[in-house]
Amino acid sequence: MISDVPPPDTEPDQLVPIGAFAQRTGLTASALRFYADSGLLDPASVDASTGYRLYSASQEPHAITLRRLREIGMSLADIRVVLDAEPSTAGNLIDDHVRHVATEADRTRREATAIKLSIAADSTTALTSVRGPILAAAIGQVLTATARDAAHPVLDGVEFRLEDGTLTLTSTDRYRLSSRSLPTLEPSDTRWSGTLCAGDLRGGLSDLARGGVIGVEAGTTTVRFALDGRDDLWCRLLDGPFPSHDAMVDALPPVIMRASVAKSAVLQSLEHCVTERVHLDFTSTALALSDASSTAVGVVPADACGPQVALWFEVATLYPAISVSIGAELLLDVRAADLPMTIRSADGGDLTTFVMPAARPPAHIDRPPRREPVT
């Protein structure tokens, strides 16, 4: 049972009237009567002739704890369980309550944002329609390449581009660039592009994933995803041009080496890397991975075509780029040790990610590398 140390200047068996007890515990007299009627805090004594309620000083810790639990929004039923529990169990129950409150607060914030956006939204124009689970998966894949950057707010967004009946999603943190294309459900000559707030998209992923056919509509400041049987999802459009990734991709030199490797094997090797950077050494038959101290972390069979080549990457950059890739087999296209490596599915090119290598680390030193951005 939860208890605090009673005040040292109070006798445990001293009885005080309800008003004085209320002042000592920070509760009101009406609250004390309510808790007595609820069976959470009975008076120590009730005068048979007057009905006056008297409380013991030893009840103060119980009353104060009860008040504090109510102040954090705990229900009476849950408070009853907490007050009767052992301290360790009570602590776990309070942690569970805090997690529930935080989850509800996040949901409330998302709902409030959606309500504000819908109230302020101007008229929208229908662009296209897509399958909800496919759209949610595509958004989840490219969101890993977004970044919060006060100087470049559009990096915390996803570019949606509709042209030739295809919807293409692109994001970049300047060291990765991910692009995923998905078909629309009807042919269209509409051409449109805009950068959607990554936070709004992230908060709506579960609703999009459970949707059937989702209509996509655009206004001047927002994009509306019309969900069947659910409240619509509204996403803000970010100001400013999205990085001109097409020009960057078009300017890349030809690939000098292409290797096909198993996705799971590469991920497992990266998970064994204990330094911030990892070294990739491609031969015609294998991809050898080692950390910054030259310790081998894995050898992955590879079907490679081209000269032997080696590159360095930050694990925090390379791992998510590989983990969201589609299919069991990957195609890795290498141009040079200081140019972006392309990661594609060997089964289909719907998701393409460009990853910028890192500089070779100084011997036996693992400090953050200097890198040139992709865009």
Score class of each variant (00 low, 15 high):
residue 236 R to A: 04
residue 244 S to D: 15
residue 240 G to F: 08
residue 266 V to Q: 09
residue 247 A to M: 09
residue 300 V to S: 02
residue 273 C to H: 09
residue 225 F to V: 07
residue 237 L to P: 11
residue 264 S to K: 08
residue 301 P to K: 00
residue 217 E to T: 13
residue 242 F to I: 05
residue 217 E to M: 14
residue 271 E to W: 12
residue 222 T to F: 04
residue 214 I to Q: 09
residue 303 D to P: 00
residue 311 L to V: 14
residue 301 P to S: 03
residue 277 R to G: 03
residue 275 T to I: 04
residue 259 A to G: 00
residue 219 G to F: 10
residue 289 L to H: 01
residue 306 G to A: 01
residue 233 L to D: 04
residue 257 M to A: 06
residue 287 L to I: 05
residue 271 E to R: 15
residue 251 A to M: 07
residue 230 R to E: 10
residue 269 S to I: 03
residue 306 G to V: 01
residue 243 P to N: 11
residue 224 R to Y: 12
residue 262 A to T: 10
residue 305 C to E: 03
residue 222 T to C: 11
residue 283 T to N: 05
residue 287 L to H: 07
residue 295 T to K: 14
residue 311 L to P: 14
residue 282 F to H: 11
residue 253 P to A: 03
residue 307 P to K: 07
residue 221 T to P: 11
residue 308 Q to Y: 03
residue 257 M to N: 06
residue 277 R to T: 02
residue 223 V to N: 03
residue 305 C to G: 00
residue 216 V to E: 08
residue 285 T to I: 02
residue 308 Q to M: 03
residue 247 A to V: 09
residue 296 A to S: 15
residue 242 F to Q: 05
residue 228 D to W: 02
residue 258 R to Q: 01
residue 267 L to T: 11
residue 292 A to D: 12
residue 262 A to W: 08
residue 246 D to R: 06
residue 283 T to W: 07
residue 228 D to R: 04
residue 306 G to N: 03
residue 258 R to W: 01
residue 298 G to A: 02
residue 295 T to E: 14
residue 309 V to W: 11
residue 283 T to A: 10
residue 238 L to T: 09
residue 290 S to M: 08
residue 229 G to Q: 14
residue 236 R to D: 07
residue 286 A to N: 03
residue 221 T to K: 13
residue 236 R to E: 08
residue 231 D to I: 01
residue 219 G to H: 08
residue 305 C to D: 02
residue 269 S to L: 01
residue 301 P to R: 00
residue 311 L to E: 09
residue 243 P to L: 08
residue 298 G to I: 07
residue 251 A to H: 06
residue 219 G to I: 02
residue 223 V to T: 02
residue 303 D to S: 04
residue 230 R to C: 03
residue 252 L to G: 04
residue 301 P to Q: 00
residue 232 D to P: 12
residue 301 P to C: 02
residue 302 A to I: 02
residue 271 E to N: 13
residue 282 F to V: 13
residue 224 R to Q: 14
residue 292 A to G: 15
residue 282 F to K: 07
residue 271 E to H: 14
residue 263 K to G: 05
residue 233 L to I: 06
residue 274 V to A: 15
residue 305 C to V: 01
residue 284 S to N: 04
residue 270 L to T: 13
residue 252 L to W: 04
residue 235 C to R: 06
residue 297 V to F: 15
residue 298 G to L: 06
residue 245 H to F: 10
residue 284 S to V: 09
residue 259 A to I: 01
residue 223 V to F: 06
residue 291 D to R: 10
residue 259 A to M: 00
residue 215 G to K: 06
residue 231 D to T: 10
residue 265 A to Q: 14
residue 255 V to A: 06
residue 293 S to N: 15
residue 308 Q to R: 09
residue 292 A to V: 08
residue 218 A to I: 07
residue 252 L to Q: 09
residue 250 D to V: 00
residue 298 G to T: 10
residue 274 V to Q: 14
residue 228 D to A: 05
residue 239 D to Y: 13
residue 250 D to H: 00
residue 235 C to I: 08
residue 305 C to W: 00
residue 281 D to M: 11
residue 248 M to F: 07
residue 290 S to L: 05
residue 220 T to N: 11
residue 248 M to Q: 09
residue 258 R to S: 02
residue 271 E to Y: 12
residue 296 A to I: 10
residue 302 A to M: 02
residue 265 A to P: 00
residue 277 R to H: 03
residue 293 S to T: 14
residue 299 V to K: 12
residue 231 D to P: 09
residue 308 Q to C: 04
residue 249 V to D: 00
residue 303 D to G: 01
residue 304 A to D: 00
